[in-house]
Design a protein around this nucleic acid. Structure first.
Lengths: 116, 116
DNA sequence: CGGGAACAATCCGCTGCCGTAACGATCCTT
DNA sequence: AAGGATCGTTACGGCAGCGGATTGTTCCCG
């Protein structure tokens, strides 16, 4: 079944999530970075810079820079496509999977605590 | 009843929301700005700079700057507390309420479209 | 009434992200 | 083999946010 949610609950959910994110001194991903990370982990590979840029409606340098940042955090990694060496394949990492797993659990926990 | 949500659904929800936010060329609020905005609209007034800073665990200049930015977008407004003129009371605006209303509806729509 | 406390705003230097425009490498087509 | 197209990256100048320290008001209390 679809997830039932009223607007007031939705805003409370966002509120709790944003408070948790701000207070965590965890690496504070920007909206664009998070969108890229989720695309890499939730959509079917392979992922290229160009593909992600088109998917998000942003320019390629934006993707490159986001990958630089998240690569330094070990949330994603890059590899040359040997079949077409112009392409770069974006790969998932253990740390990235763990990061998103925690994030998902956090959302679930907040949702469960939401007032009726 | 609490909102039922599985981790995979939670991540899909975040994915759709972040994609929508990135593609909208709407004023892209930072996580901190959104947290402040939601606190102002969802928690009981009055709201002061100091109170919000303590609530989010950030410094006061962060709140002042966020209010500058969101004030320019007419999402919030400021007023001197006449009872204690050291304080600044953060007030809601029609535009801000509308902004959050749309945001809440968007979350609901995405949640409803989530696969079982 | 005077000195200190509380509050918000501002200043400072720094870091990170932005968009545009280039660039080098690689592929494809002829 | 050569020209053009495609891909990712980098260079550049600009803008916004950050933390920490400081300032100017206003209040409080002895």
């Amino acid at each position: 079944m679809a997830v039932e949610l009223r607007p007031s609950q939705a805003l409370r959910l966002l509120h709790e999530l944003s408070l948790a994110q701000v207070r965590d001194d965890a690496p504070d991903l920007s909206p664009r970075q998070l969108a890229i990370l989720l695309s890499v982990y939730l959509e079917t590979p392979p992922h290229t810079v160009r593909g992600l840029a088109a998917r998000l409606g942003v320019t390629k340098p934006v993707v490159t820079r986001a990958l630089d940042t998240m690569g330094a955090l070990h949330l994603v990694s890059r590899r040359r496509d040997e079949a077409d060496r112009r392409n770069v394949i974006i790969q998932r990492t253990v740390e990235g999977a763990l990061y998103l797993e925690k994030l998902g659990d956090q959302v679930v926990a907040v949702a469960r605590a939401l007032p009726r």
